[in-house]
Amino acid sequence: MSRQSVAANRPSHAAGLKPANSAAAAAKFLEKKKEFDAVSALQRASALYLQRIEGLADDCATMADAGQIHGQVLEQWPRMFQILNLFLTSGEATPDDTGEATVPGQRLVRIPIEELQEASEEPKTSG
């Protein structure tokens, strides 16, 4: 007995898509394209957000380092005041190199401002 082929009864998809199927596929394609564009925009926004957060982390690290240095400086102040107090209470009025009597602690450092100003006002010669 011979059997008849069932392949002849199948509709062919190679002949072309029906207009209803084509419109549905185009709509689905547009939907997927919008979804892809949204995900791409989210990825770009996330990258920018990551850059900002990394910048904030760098700023926080800088501030932490500055805080440590600030703490180290503040740690030295009590010792400095102790030294200044010892200097102020260490003696009577003593004459300085100009012959004037000064109270200890009245002048800690002499900066020759006049000499510095004269040196900076002198014209510089090029040889």
Rank of each mutant, 00 (worst) to 15 (best):
A66T: 13
L48C: 02
P78V: 01
A57P: 00
K32V: 11
R44A: 04
S46W: 04
M63D: 10
Y49W: 09
A57M: 13
S46A: 15
E35T: 06
Q76I: 04
A38F: 02
G55L: 01
E35H: 04
Q68A: 13
Q51G: 03
A61R: 12
A26V: 14
R52W: 03
Y49Q: 11
L30D: 15
A27F: 05
L42P: 00
D37M: 01
A66C: 13
A41E: 09
S40C: 09
A47H: 03
I69K: 11
A38G: 01
G71I: 09
L74E: 08
A57I: 10
A66E: 14
R79C: 02
K33E: 08
D37H: 02
W77A: 13
A41D: 11
R79W: 02
Q51I: 05
K34D: 03
C60I: 10
Q43C: 05
C60Y: 04
Q68T: 15
E75N: 14
A26K: 10
L56Y: 15
K34F: 03
A38E: 03
A47M: 04
A47D: 12
F36A: 07
Q43D: 10
V73F: 08
A47G: 06
R44W: 00
P78W: 00
A41S: 08
A47P: 00
L50Q: 07
Q72A: 14
R44D: 00
R52M: 07
A66S: 09
A66H: 13
E75G: 08
L74S: 07
H70D: 01
D58C: 05
G67M: 08
A38N: 02
L74G: 05
M63S: 07
A45V: 09
Q51P: 00
G67A: 07
E35Q: 10
K33S: 11
F81H: 09
Q72D: 14
L50P: 00
K32S: 03
D59R: 12
P78E: 00
D58V: 05
S40D: 06
I69T: 13
L42D: 10
Q43I: 14
F36K: 02
M80Y: 04
E35M: 05
H70R: 04
K28W: 05
G55W: 01
E75Y: 05
C60D: 04
A45R: 07
M80E: 11
D58Q: 09
R52Q: 09
E35P: 00
D59H: 10
K32N: 11
F29R: 14
A45E: 03
G55Y: 00
M80C: 10
Q72C: 07
S46K: 10
Q76Y: 01
